[in-house]
Design a protein around this nucleic acid. Sequence first.
RNA 1: GCGGUUGUGGCGUAAUUGGUAGCCGCGCCAGACUUAGGAUCUGGUGCCGAAAGGCGUGGGGGUUCGAGUCCCUUCAGCCGCACCA
Length: 918
Amino acid sequence: MEYNFREIERKWQAYWKDHQIYKTIEDPNKPKYYVLDMFPYPSGAGLHVGHPLGYIASDIYSRYKRLKGFNVLHPMGFDAFGLPAEQYAIQTGQHPAITTKNNIARYRDQLDKIGFSYDWDREIRTCDPDYYHWTQWAFIQMFHHYYDNDLQKAQPISRLIEHFEKKGTENLHASSTHELSFTASDWKEMSEKQQQEILLNYRIAYLADTKVNWCPALGTVLANDEVSEGVSIRGGYPVEQRIMRQWCLRVSAYAQRLLDGLETIDWTDSLKETQRNWIGRSEGAEIRFSIKGRKETFEVFTTRADTIFGVTFMVLAPESELVKICTTPEQAIEVEKYLDNTKKRTERERLADRRVTGVFSGSYAIHPITGEEIPIWISDYVLAGYGTGAIMAVPAHDSRDYAFAKHFNLPIIPLIQGCDVSEESFDAKEGIMINSGFLNGLTIKEAIEATKKYITEKGIGRVKINYRLRDAIFSRQRYWGEPIPIYYKNGMPYTLSEEELPLELPEVDKFLPTEKGEPPLARAKNWKTKDGYPLEVCTMPGFAGSSAYYLRFMDPKNDKALVSPEANQYWRNVDLYLGGTEHATGHLIYSRFWNKFLFDLGIVCEDEPFKKLINQGMIQGRSNFVYRIKDTNTFVSYHLKDQYETTPIHVDVNMVSNDILDLEKFRNWNPEYKNAEFILEDGKYICGWAIEKMSKSMFNVVNPDDIVENYGADTLRLYEMFLGPLEQSKPWDTNGIDGVHRFIKKLWNLFYKNDELSVSEENPTAEELKVLHKTIKKISYDIENFSYNTAVSAFMICVNELFTLKCNKKAILEPLLILLAPFAPHISEELYHTLGNSDTVFNASFPQYDEEFLKENTVFYPVSFNGKVRFTLEMPTDASKEEVEKTALSHPQTLKYMEGKTPKKIIIVPGKIINIVF
RNA sequence: GCGGUUGUGGCGUAAUUGGUAGCCGCGCCAGACUUAGGAUCUGGUGCCGAAAGGCGUGGGGGUUCGAGUCCCUUCAGCCGCACCA
């Protein structure tokens, strides 16, 4: 029989579906294992060959774990809300729900062809009301909680109100937007509206005026991780800063726990480092300065408290509230001018053009230790959003302060013994302090500690930890997202009751803002509560739906809760999570935050959602080029191109094979090339190539459907794994796929001789057993270590060796099929049944290797002289060191290489190597 | 600038963790079967050299009997962060 992959794959995919092989239920008798892929956003372009890489890897692991006796949860769903479908809707009028549904169908079809073991009964779509019910529910919980810094835990708002009623803000240690201070009686005298406004300052989901990234082209605000270098990541449209009243999530409250949690999880160092970076913890001191002639004081944050004696000026961010206070009438015009100028510059311009700019405020600060007067300046090199928006400038030891001081001719006082600050600042954190009063003679490290102690004791400052992590802005002025379950009464936000969920996305006539500039939901008819209060018109951002989806998979049909305690306690958290690095600072921070919040509420039993995480590398494209001779329609083959002046042109890789261009296809590709002429080499047109991103514009996109059609899903799966280490980026080159396909056919031919099934029941030989058990050992090790490329190579070696041995014994081939089943499920299932089994191969057990079969009688020693290997020596495995040495020294070859000299030293590593030094 | 990560044949890669560098494939070369080959099978294939032999894991240095692997130094690519005080 021929290996007919089309028929085999169709047959077993249907069988698995009909017999519900992948249906998963909680089974207390088996250990659980949860394998999750980062679910895709179903784009209109469909999957290319790079997308399934991680899915294949996780599928192999899932099937392996199952064969090892685990109850494996391996679900899949779709991150279905998002901008592209909405942009498409604006352009074409097609409802994003329809676009999304079609795209999902396409994705599903493509995924099905590859033969994954997903339990599709658990499929979730974030745009499904039954799903976003629980996204909205979580938001409501966040609204009704605040973060207690003492307990390091979310607490009900009712507890906060109690505190206010008893003590006002006294002894309150809660995360907040602004530091507030009021008494219990102040609180009681406030109106309902005032109280609500105060509470927003503490809620974990809160409404506040914040500086946002406004993207005019998309008509919405974007989160920090959705913006890069001043443009939106989706679409690349310019983004500007604006102050707007927005929903935010108090992620910053969890900064320390997000940081600490990294120690407990098995992620790569680079990813943890990226998150640490993003959280940006810095330990320092907050020091208070008074303003000469005024009662107001202000604080600055510094990590270099040791440099306090080197402060020669202060700098305020232009947006700082202190600017008003510090500006003297004499300087008012100058300051006004400067503020106007900075306002006109966008964030991008400020970053691109690092000119030193600033203006003197007219006021002086009083140095808290020396009592000296220090001029207060205003400059946009100080960021309003970090620390207190004001700094103490130490030009001798900070390059930014140095540049500023040089430009405005301000004094520079060196503080480190022997440092030279005539040309640049000395930023290094090493040396002995000078010019620093009581700090003189201390090392920097000692001086930092001494200063902290001093300012704390004298009450002029305190030790402070700052985080770069900002609260997440949660409003999007868009249509295609989860409605926020909020209504407004008296201008203040209130949540809908849980019974009113899900708040379904309403129909609108157009997916555009209203004439008044309100978001699209403002177009909806009757967008108000039954009592007539207006509902929130913003929707949630893209990361909302993906923040807790891994929990929903545990219990996807539950209409009473996000996840039942029973399901959650069984599945706990994700054991293995696979996905790309692009989510390092977005999804992977937000979902950890979301999970920790639910953990505080006792909804989930694990503090961290993803125990182990692997980032699969990107599959790059391999582009092909033709070379057109300038101003002609003639194309010259690669090796001849240097004889002409040519322009390289991308050609579709699908009409190139082994870098040889199909001329006929090329001519028909584009009318422009209809009459193209070619200068060939050896009768062929050879294309040039380059490794680039896989994208439509490079014409290097390879569709998995085509590969499945031509080679089968098993070949695709094996080849994707064979390309190289999972985590590494590597180019896709369809040319190499034949090798893997040949391997599968060779495996097939172990079973079939001249189209006849030929499998023997005979007992295997020692040699055959050795081949099998060597392979079992290697495959087990490789799967555990996600080294799938070497596993595929081990399979090839195994089949090559069995082929040489002409082995067709069932006792060898059957375990081999079980080993291979996670990688190539279809052919394994087919041949497993061919051997007479009636149950699926995935109900078998993974073979165990037996060291007994791997024992060798003899070992080949490489014999080297002064480190150079000259020949090998076969010795019995159990030969003693002395025997080996004796045999080696008396070997005729040894005499030749010794050139009559006496050995100085003989190194023998049993079973490994012999080295003779002379 | 800071941090992470990777440098091995023409290409993708491997190396039991300090012990024969180049496994497994692609490509290429030769041969077989073929009307044919972008099919299949067999053999060869790191570089230089006719061979003996020499050289060889980005470069330089070191430790060691022995280094792709450890240490120092340097270069290059990729990724992340970046006026974060």
